[in-house]
Every structure is written in C-alpha cells, then in structure tokens.
Design a protein around this nucleic acid. Structure first.
Lengths: 208, 208
DNA sequence: CTATAAAAATGAACCCATTCAACTTTTTTG
DNA sequence: CAAAAAAGTTGAATGGGTTCATTTTTATAG
C-alpha cells in the first residue's frame, strides 16, 4: 500500500531527515552534548516536531541501534544457514560476526547510552525494542548449538537453551566491557572471548 | 585519627543524613522522581549542600549501592574461607550469597539506575567505583575456582580466570535480567542460573 | 473554489539536575 | 576576646529534555 498523498510523503521525509541527523550528530559528538535543538536544526524541523516522530531522545538513539542490529541479525542468519562443522569455529564465527559489525554505524558512546537506557527503563517502548533485539541475538546462539546437535557435531544431551544463554550472556557482557573501555580494541575483545568460549566449545563438542 | 572539632562532627552528621534520606526516598519512590530538593529537605540541608557532599545525584545512588556490595563482598569472603568440596555447590553457594543479599537495602529500580549510570559514564568517579566493586566480585569467583583447584577438587589445567569471568558474566547478566523484570522472583533467578552453571561446574570438576 | 475539519508543526513554558557568587559559621591568630 | 582567614552553606540562575496550547498546512465536503 504505497502512501502517495503529499502529507504521507512529507512525513516520511521528515522522519528520515531526523534519523539521518541523529546518526550523523551522535557519531560526531557525544550523545549527551547533542541537543534536540541541534537535531531539529539539521533536520530542518522544529523541536516539537522531533517529539512528534520520536517519543524521547532515547527513542531516536534506539532507532539508530535497531538499524545496526537488524543488519547484524541478518548476517547471523547467513552464518546459521551453513555454519562450520567445528563447534568452536561455528560459535566464534557467529560471535565475531556480531562484534565486527557493531561499530559500523554506531560509536562506543552510542552503545553505552543505548545500553544504559535499555536497563534504566526496560518497560518503555524503546527499552522493549532493545531487549527484543537482544533476545533474537541470543536465540541465534541457541539455534546454532541446536543445529550442531542435530548434525551430530555437538553432544545431544546438553541443554542448548541454557548453554546458548550462558555463552550469549558472556559475549554480551564482554561487549559491554568493550564499549565501556575506550582503549579496548576489537582484537582484544575477540581474543578474550575466544579464551573464554573455547573450553565450553570443547565440552559441547564432547571432550576428547 | 578521631575528628572531634565541631566542624568535622557537623560534616559527618550532614553526610550521614543525606545518605540516609537517599536510602529512604530511593526505596520508597522511583529514583527518577526523587528530586535533590526532596533529599535536601529530608536531610535538613540546602540543595547546594547536597552537592557539596556528592558530586551528582548518581554519586548518591552509587554510595547506596556500594554499602550493599561491600556487605556482599564480606559475605563472599566468609564463603571463600571454607567452601563446600563439591564444585557445583561451592559456586552456587557463592552466587546465591550475592543474589540473596542484593535487595536488602536496594530496590530493583535502584539497581537498574545504578547499572545504567555505570555503563553510561564508566569514566566518572561513580562509574569507576561501581566497576571496581564489580571486578572484586568477579575476582571472588575466580579465587573460588583457584581454591578448588589447589584442593584437587577441580581440574588444574583449566584457566581459572577465564572460567571465573565467564561464570561471573553470566550471573551478572542474569542479575540484570532479574532487576529489569519486575515480575521475576529471586527463586526463578536462582533456578535459571543453577541450570546454566551446572554443566560448567561438572566440566570444572572433571566429568565422570 | 470556498469553507470546514483533520492532521501536523511550532516554540514558549515547565521541570529538574547542576553551578556559583554571596553570605554564615567555625577556626585560627595575636 | 576581637579580627582575619578558612571552610562551608545557601538559593537563585542556567541549561536541556519534554509538554502543550496555538498556528499552519493539508485533506475533504458542499
């Protein structure tokens, strides 16, 4: 159902301009120091109009994060369609896929603010939106373990859901550590998580 | 070095009153809806004086959290002084010690706000204070694994530090899930973490 | 092509955390 | 004990997110 009325087109264009301004400004300066007035100016609308499209400043940020995570999820589906046969390689491949895409559009500061918002107010629309994405990422890890089990490459008597969540919680917390520490590199994150994930991967594969 | 001057006594009394007001009000109402003015009124000082003792509203909250976590750490040291001989029981004993104390003085809302602040601004004094406590908790889990290893109750060829952090990251993330979800009970948290921790505990003990 | 209704945009006003220049109280000095 | 210095308290002013009554724009009806 294409919306061809003048009003619909203008609405879409305004929302687009606001989001574009947000991605640009939030990446350039700190989230905190970007004022709604600045976004409004760059998007050529008034302050009130910004609030017509996004409930709060946090909503705008979460919209930026959601764009990125949707891509990460799509990439995860790719990997899930034909994962490596080795448990460790499969798990780390998926995890590194998440990590490597994470700073494509977002800065560490944006991640920090988004994480903070989602924890501070999990029951608001933006909080729910964030945690929904989070749960879908976690689901991919669990799905990967199930797939490996069904292929006979992983122990079938292990609780895929519990282990998936354990591994996801670890990669997620390490990601928080990563965005929390400006000096920490992606390589260091990868190395640390590799060491942490390896013994679990061995166990899932069935220790030799 | 006892501070007996009038000024010192008054300072200590004021700081005490402010912190007491904070614990009381933050538990009663939401953190957000407590205004500095309210704290000042209850503590019988002015708004400006509150800022003389605490840099920001967040500092006051973190001071409340720190009181609680210091007790949790002390309890952890107790457990570490003579942990059970079974790996699973030892780990879960320590973890449940953390969980069971967590709501003694703090509400879920206070935890949410403190977590959010510490992620949002990890480089501020309160951010550092929070993450220091966090690291000490994580260290206890690692120390417990090392102790079990030295006693010959855990596999010595495993990386205690990596496994400690993995388990801590999981318990921490599950705690975030817990404070994020008002309806989630402590019992449910315990049960979930038990299922997640058990296979790792088995591995650490050396699977039979 | 008006006139009316519906939808959206606008920016001044509001609420709070935070700051800071002026004022009080306590301590020190002579 | 009085005066000067030091330390601390105070509340009005500032800044930025958010709200909402008013104005402007677009769609619909006659």
């Amino acid at each position: 159902m294409a919306k061809t009325g003048l009003r619909e087109r203008q609405k879409a264009a305004r929302e687009e301009r606001i989001l574009h301004a947000a991605v640009t400004l939030f990446r350039t300066e700190d989230y905190r120091s970007v004022r709604i007035e600045d976004l409004a100016e760059m998007a050529e609308v008034s302050v009130g109009t910004v609030y017509n499209y996004y409930r709060t400043k946090g909503d705008i940020l979460i919209a930026c994060v959601a764009m990125e995570v949707e891509e990460v999820l799509a990439n995860g589906r790719q990997i899930l369609s034909a994962p490596p046969h080795d448990v460790e390689q499969a798990l780390l491949g998926l995890i590194f896929g998440y990590y490597d895409h994470s700073l494509e559009y977002l800065s560490k500061d944006m991640w920090r603010q988004a994480l903070a918002l989602s924890i501070e107010a999990p029951d608001t629309p933006y909080g729910r939106r964030y945690w929904d994405l989070d749960a879908r990422l976690c689901g991919q890890v669990t799905d990967l373990i199930r797939l490996l089990q069904s292929r006979g490459e992983a122990q079938r008597d292990l609780d895929a859901s519990a282990l998936g969540q354990l591994l996801f919680n670890n990669l997620n917390m390490m990601f928080i550590e990563f965005v929390k520490t400006d000096a920490m590199t992606l390589q260091h994150l990868r190395d640390t998580v590799t060491i942490q994930t390896r013994p679990i991967a061995r166990m899932i594969a069935g220790a030799t």
